[in-house]
Write a protein that binds this DNA or RNA. Sequence first.
DNA 1: GAATAAGTTGACTTGCTGGTATGAGTGCGG
DNA 2: CCGCACTCATACCAGCAAGTCAACTTATTC
Lengths: 203, 203
Amino acid sequence: MKLSPRAELKAKKQAYVQDEIVAAAAKLFAERGYRAVTIDDIGSSLDYTKSVVYYYFNSKNEILWQIFQRIYDSYFESIQEIRARNLPPAEAMRMIIRKHALNVMERREWTAIYFREESELNDQQRREIAKKKRQYDAMIEEVYEAGMEAGVFRRMPKHIAVSGLLGMCNWLYVWYKEQGAFSAEEIADYCVNLLANGYLTKG
Amino acid sequence: MKLSPRAELKAKKQAYVQDEIVAAAAKLFAERGYRAVTIDDIGSSLDYTKSVVYYYFNSKNEILWQIFQRIYDSYFESIQEIRARNLPPAEAMRMIIRKHALNVMERREWTAIYFREESELNDQQRREIAKKKRQYDAMIEEVYEAGMEAGVFRRMPKHIAVSGLLGMCNWLYVWYKEQGAFSAEEIADYCVNLLANGYLTKG
DNA sequence: GAATAAGTTGACTTGCTGGTATGAGTGCGG
DNA sequence: CCGCACTCATACCAGCAAGTCAACTTATTC
């Protein structure tokens, strides 16, 4: 599909402003919760009026939906990339956990929305997200299964294992602070180690 | 302070109805989010009118605050009790994790509210809860510290360790289903084991 | 059975918020 | 220099939800 230079320019600007708005909205949603944030708030935080926001988006829900899609896609790609390398399970799992933890910390706000505001989506959106979450988990469960078969991972229901492992990482969105004493990388490494070997020093 | 028999009866009934209302509210808040639930909704779910709810509570916030206090207290007591036994760190930590995980699963809905709706509290309430959360974590960090000094726990920043351990447990409120294939006890045991020894089978 | 207290009702107020209508300013293409 | 598309502001509306209130009903006590 060809676009006139004019239309192209328009598309580019619109994409830019949309990004701006989504980012501003995400920040506010994460702080105060979706319902507590008004379109006015979102606009004001960028020195726009409400109608600017409505010019770029049809509804508040549309903004939220964008956040969900973008955050999910970025998570999905990260894992896809690791899986594509066909590494042995132990190596793959280590990288997945590390990357997942880093993603959570780097995108704290978006992640918080992703986990907290699911009930604000409509039925269809919720179904879609639920499906994607299952896909994401399933990818990692496959790795866990392979690890168990290779005898290198603890034998346990893979769903519980993966939910547990990801759980520790996901929780980072609650307690990780950028200003903290440790960098995201350091924390991610601690998590990987803790999950891989446990907190006990046996031997 | 002495109460007349009449006042006593009144207090008893009020306490009962308040419990009912708080429980109903918690269920709805957990499902749909605090802001999305109206006082009418809460009342209707018990075949009361909105006015009845306002007869027993002064405001919507008061209901939420009750939920926060009650859930925190129950968590706190569990840990207090374990700590009071002065067990060796490895034993204590195992019991703490197990009990914490069980608490999360048994009180899924209340826990969800506790973690999701903090932003709906006012400043003073938020400060109070933040303080209590720090206290709770600090108790467990002490155990972790003792374990490190005894040489039985992996050396790492205790705050990261405890946040990680509790994180896996806290996340249960997201994925644990009562109807699932495994009981809360089984899942708690898997978590304890995974956290203590890691997912790798070295040795 | 009167007096008082407890509990309940439904209509009302009030403020807010998502979304719309309309039109004014701006700048590019011709 | 005109006209059109694009961008954005102002004013507005409809609906909703928290909280209030005075009146009413039901228990309890003496």
